[in-house]
Simulated assay, not measured.
Amino acid sequence: MEAHLRLATANYPVISFGTGSNVRLPGPSISQPNVYAFNRTSYDSMYKELYVKDEHLYRANGVLELLDRNRGIKWGPERWQDWSIGLPRLTQTNDKGSVGTEGGTVDVVFTCEERCWDAVIEDLHQRGGKLNKPVHVINVGIIDNAKEALAGGSAILDLANCFQKALEEEEEKFGSGSQARDGFDDRVPEIIGEWEERWPALPVSWTLAWF
C-alpha cells in the first residue's frame, strides 16, 4: 500500500490488489494470524477489531499503524483474481464514498513479491487476453517492513515517472495513437535497465502480458 500511496499522491490513477486467498495479518503467534476476506472487509473494521482485541500488541507490532494508513487510502483490500477486467467502475478511496472512475484496465502492473508477480501472470494467461491490450507486469522485490516499504515506494514512483516521461515523448512524436504506444512499449526494457542502475539493491522482473 505504500507504493499505492506514493503513486496516488503523485496524481497517478492507481488501484491495488492482493493475490492470496485471504488477507492475513500478524496475530498473537505465527500459528494464530488474523484472517479476513477480500472485497468484504474494510480496513476501518479491521483496525477497530484489533484495537479492541489487544491495542498494546497490535500497536507494538505495527499492525494498527499499517491499518490506519490503509483506511485513509481506500475502503478495503481487493483480490486481483476477482477484478472484472475491462469493466469500468467507480473507485472508493475511503469511507466517505466513491471517488473517480476506474476504466477496467491499466498500462502497468507493479507487484512487490515474486509470488504475486507469478499469480498475476498466471491469471492473465488464464483469462486469455480477450481485450488484446498489452500490460507491463513488473515485480520490484521489497522486504515486508516499514523501512523497506518506504524505499520501495520511492523506487516504484521513480520508475512510474520514467514511464510517464517516455510516453509523453512518444506522444509528442506520434500523437496519442497506437504508434506512440508501440514506441513506449519498445522502450520499457531500456527504461528498466537504467532504473536498475539507480536502485541496485532492489531485484526487478518484467514481462509483457495481455488483457
Rank of each mutant, 00 (worst) to 15 (best):
P77V: 04
P77H: 13
V52P: 00
N34T: 08
K96V: 08
Y51N: 06
W83I: 04
G72Q: 10
T93W: 06
E78K: 03
Q81F: 02
W75A: 05
E55P: 00
Q81W: 01
I85T: 12
R79D: 00
R59T: 15
I85E: 12
L25R: 08
I85V: 15
K96H: 12
K48T: 11
I73W: 07
I73K: 00
D68N: 14
L25T: 12
Q92L: 11
Q81R: 12
K74Q: 14
P33A: 10
N61L: 04
V52E: 11
S45P: 00
I85K: 07
A60F: 06
L57N: 02
N39R: 08
P26H: 12
G86R: 11
V35Y: 10
N70E: 07
D82F: 01
R24T: 08
R71S: 01
K96W: 03
N61F: 09
G86Q: 13
M46Q: 07
S98D: 02
Y47V: 13
S84G: 03
N70R: 13
K74Y: 05
W75N: 07
L25V: 13
M46R: 05
D95W: 09
L67V: 13
P33H: 12
L57T: 14
K53E: 15
V23Y: 01
T93V: 14
D82Q: 10
F38D: 00
S42R: 09
P28E: 11
Y47D: 01
L67D: 05
N39Y: 00
W75Y: 10
G72K: 11
S42C: 02
A37V: 03
G72A: 05
S98M: 10
I30N: 01
Y51A: 05
D68L: 09
Y43M: 03
P88H: 00
S98L: 13
G72D: 04
I73P: 00
E55I: 01
R59Y: 08
E49Y: 03
V52H: 07
E49I: 12
V23A: 06
W80A: 15
R79M: 08
V52N: 06
V52C: 02
N70F: 11
G62D: 09
E49A: 13
